[in-house]
Amino acid sequence: MQFKDSILLLTALSLGAVARPHGHERRHAHPQINEIADKVVEEAPAVTAPAQVAEKVVDGLNQRDVGDEVYATINGVLVSWINEWAGGVDSTTSTTSTSSSSTSIYVPPTTTTAEPTTSTSAPAVESSVSATPASSSGGSWTSYPSDGDFSTSGFGATNYIAEALGIEWSGNTGLPWGSNIQQVSESDASQYRNVIRFEGSNTDDWTVIFWNKMGPNKQMTGFFSPNKALSFTLAPNEVAYVAIDDESTGGWTAYQGDDCPLSEYGSYAATWGEFTMRKAPNFSSWDVSCIQAQNAEKDIQGMSICTHDGSQCSSITKNMGKVTNAYTSAETDINGIGGNLKDEAVRLVVNLDYA
């Protein structure tokens, strides 16, 4: 698909270019993506929130009826199409039963019109699993189920555009949105394919907010406040375990204090962890990034992400004292930074307030 032919993608790109997404978003980008995204933003009026950006790029689509001809200037070229979207749930969505959850594959309409919603809000999925002291951790969470059958208990239905590639790939965002990410107990963690262990600060409470790259409005707005797939707070020396469903891509931010720092556009602007969890033969990948915090001129929190055996790590210390295999604004357009695995399962350890 040519980027200039997709209104939905250009809407997402304009949002991404304003907020300067990075890591997985840019790592899978088309070579021309930065040029196209920047041009869209240059031609759009100045705005202060992602929803307003989307409304400007797809101006007037919310009022179109089926059969209306729609016009738009994209990358300097006037294009038109016949609107065939009438609202509601796509009748081509299919659901099949699995052992513990249904699978729903979203099939997009044949037109290139964007969905009319511009809301980025979604109810937070609050944690119902208590954090535990780090001293009680043990190593059993790194094992795999003896029968080789990984659990999907607690996840919602899977939901993603299977045929989309590159930057268009939304990953599994869960149905409902955010139900692909959940906090689990240490005793249950080994039953899931993709698990991250979070280790808290030695001295202070830290809050973690998870999101999917693709927001609940099916645009690249998942990392904008107030979107939360999961949030929890770790007291000093506590740990928590998070399970992530297959084919998911997104990230988390971690911060000390009452409120997460935000950029002027409303994106989370504390240090990020980013992930893409895929089954073999595809690679799962992750990285630490401070691009959002750095560009927003906010404090840069320390964070490290390592495989449980320490063989691969990505880390940034407080205020970029030391950067190892991680993203700063200087690496915004570089692909491949961070760790990657093509194993049966993913077991990562995140150290917050990393010094």
Rank of each mutant, 00 (worst) to 15 (best):
S304R: 10
P109H: 08
Q183K: 13
E84Y: 02
D147S: 11
L78P: 00
S80Y: 07
K213D: 05
T48L: 14
D245Q: 13
I36F: 05
M220F: 12
I82M: 10
V346F: 01
N319T: 12
V53H: 03
D38M: 09
Q2G: 09
F224C: 13
A164K: 01
N325G: 12
S263P: 06
T221M: 03
G339W: 12
I244F: 06
I82G: 00
K322I: 12
G321L: 06
L9Q: 07
F283Q: 09
T317N: 11
A122D: 02
T221D: 11
E35T: 15
G88P: 10
S311C: 05
S284C: 05
F283V: 07
N282G: 01
T307S: 08
S151A: 12
A54N: 00
Y160I: 00
I209C: 03
S231R: 05
E247A: 11
M1D: 10
R347Y: 00
G257Y: 04
G87M: 08
D59E: 15
G154L: 01
T158Y: 00
N194W: 00
D68H: 14
D5Y: 04
V70C: 08
G138N: 02
G336V: 15
P109C: 08
D204F: 04
A19G: 14
F155R: 00
E69Y: 14
G251H: 03
S102E: 15
Y327S: 07
C306W: 02
M277H: 00
S119L: 11
T158N: 03
N83C: 12
Q301D: 15
A345G: 01
A12K: 02
L8W: 09
W286N: 01
G87Y: 06
A124Y: 04
P216T: 02
K4M: 03
F198C: 06
A355D: 15
A345R: 00
I36E: 07
K318D: 13
N237K: 15
G138H: 04
T73K: 09
G310Y: 01
Q256L: 03
N325C: 13
T276H: 02
G222T: 09
A270P: 08
Y268S: 08
T276V: 04
S128G: 08
W177F: 11
S315P: 06
Y354S: 06
A44S: 15
T73M: 05
V125D: 06
P176C: 06
T332A: 13
R64C: 15
E247N: 09
K228S: 13
D149H: 07
V242N: 08
A355T: 11
W272E: 09
D353E: 14
T117S: 13
Q32T: 14
E247Y: 04
V53N: 01
T92L: 13
D246P: 10
M214Q: 04
D204P: 01
V288Q: 03
E168P: 06
T307A: 08
V346K: 00
P31E: 14
S267N: 14
P145C: 10
N194Y: 10
S80V: 03
N75D: 12
A131V: 10
C313N: 03
F210H: 10
A114L: 12
T276A: 10
K342Y: 07
S329Y: 08
S225E: 13
E297D: 14
V77D: 06
K56M: 11
E55N: 08
I244L: 08
N325I: 15
A330P: 00
